[in-house]
Write a protein that binds this DNA or RNA. Sequence first.
DNA 1: TATTATTGTCTCATATTGTGACAATAATAA
DNA 2: TTATTATTGTCACAATATGAGACAATAATA
Lengths: 234, 234
Amino acid sequence: MESPEEQNYLSHIAYDSVIFGFSGEKLKILIMEYHNTGWYALPGGFVRLNEDLNKAVRRGLKERTGLDNIFLEQFYTFGDVSRYNPEIMKTILTQSGYLSDSTTWMLDRFISVAYYALINYNDVVPKPDELSDSIGWYEIDALPDLMLDHNEIVARALQTLRDNLERKLVGINLLPEFFTMKELQLVYEAILGEKLRRTTFQRKILSLGILKRHEKRFSGMANKAPYLYSFNRS
Amino acid sequence: MESPEEQNYLSHIAYDSVIFGFSGEKLKILIMEYHNTGWYALPGGFVRLNEDLNKAVRRGLKERTGLDNIFLEQFYTFGDVSRYNPEIMKTILTQSGYLSDSTTWMLDRFISVAYYALINYNDVVPKPDELSDSIGWYEIDALPDLMLDHNEIVARALQTLRDNLERKLVGINLLPEFFTMKELQLVYEAILGEKLRRTTFQRKILSLGILKRHEKRFSGMANKAPYLYSFNRS
DNA sequence: TATTATTGTCTCATATTGTGACAATAATAA
DNA sequence: TTATTATTGTCACAATATGAGACAATAATA
């Protein structure tokens, strides 16, 4: 929207991002709220005429989270006609004061490429964009009703994350550099939505040879201090 | 292209399809050749203004293969700027006699949603579209050089198919209704690109409880006749 | 009737996972 | 100092799953 006189973005193409973070024992995602509408939505955006699709998404993520180089993966492209609802977009633009000749292209039909990202919750102070007045973390199993098909997008993102859990070293992106075995297990449990057996989990993870063991962490609790681990960057 | 006076399709959005079939011992895909260019490409198409993305792809598949109701799954959306090559598209349209005011939108940049399909090789007589003079089967490991990033699209389709092999009952789509254990194993081997152990494979598949055993097939070969199986439609 | 190629099934060895037991702490309470 | 408590790191054993080969049962042919 930096040049109000001409359309700098590809028409009909948008992206939406499901940004996962882990805090305490819960998996959360970032949700925005549009100005004066009460409507919640996933952070999204458009692709510049001369910009790679993947780059556009990273740009948007950087603007929203301040983070570069985060884990980001495309998982599905939503293209049903039923996504097309010009009235909703019109209201959003109107309420933000952005409805004009230069933004009418936004009222057209869009096909949206959906991505999910994994970030370290504590590294981030989310920033809203021009159209929204807030952005914040919501627990994955206590989301508000989202606009259009965004709840479905989240469901599919979570399913993809689960399917990829074994293959993609998910923890490396959701945890700080040093963490305990217990913390890693909590991440897995939050994603899978089920309890795991401590001994089996520990043996399995250690057998993968992807963890490096460091000194113990003395937590002040009345129990044996756990080792800290980090991921073996290969 | 049925109405030459106006643009009936969404701009900037295309799809490409990797259509797998299995014949003998080889996995194959359908490749088209454009008129008078020597260029090979995946079958693709555009989305009508008022059409679901998935429906558009099924429509294209129907036109190319005559088949309805086939296994079809989206796997990635390709959106790099480097895909943008108006000269190539211009040549294709020119050679087909389709270059005109009503087709200039095709010279624009496109983001392509890629799908893979699984079909029963013997059910199909492929038909070329307006822009191409041939469409035919090519073995997956003996493909010609394809246009743009189409070789990369195929590679990714194959990887997705491998990743999904366990979860999606692939054989059901690539084989006729009745088949032997050996034939099913050949499908798995062709997809994975490696030999499997006969006894282990048989035990594994049977333990899934998805196969129904029928009478034996007498092949005329000098050996024990194998049972025929079909998939348990659930 | 013997021979040949292939199939269906079994057995045993090996690897992986489920489940519980237990000793080793690190703080706190007695 | 000495129990007590909660949690952690490991081990042991059972239950399953998988790898690898053996072998008998065919269906045609010699």
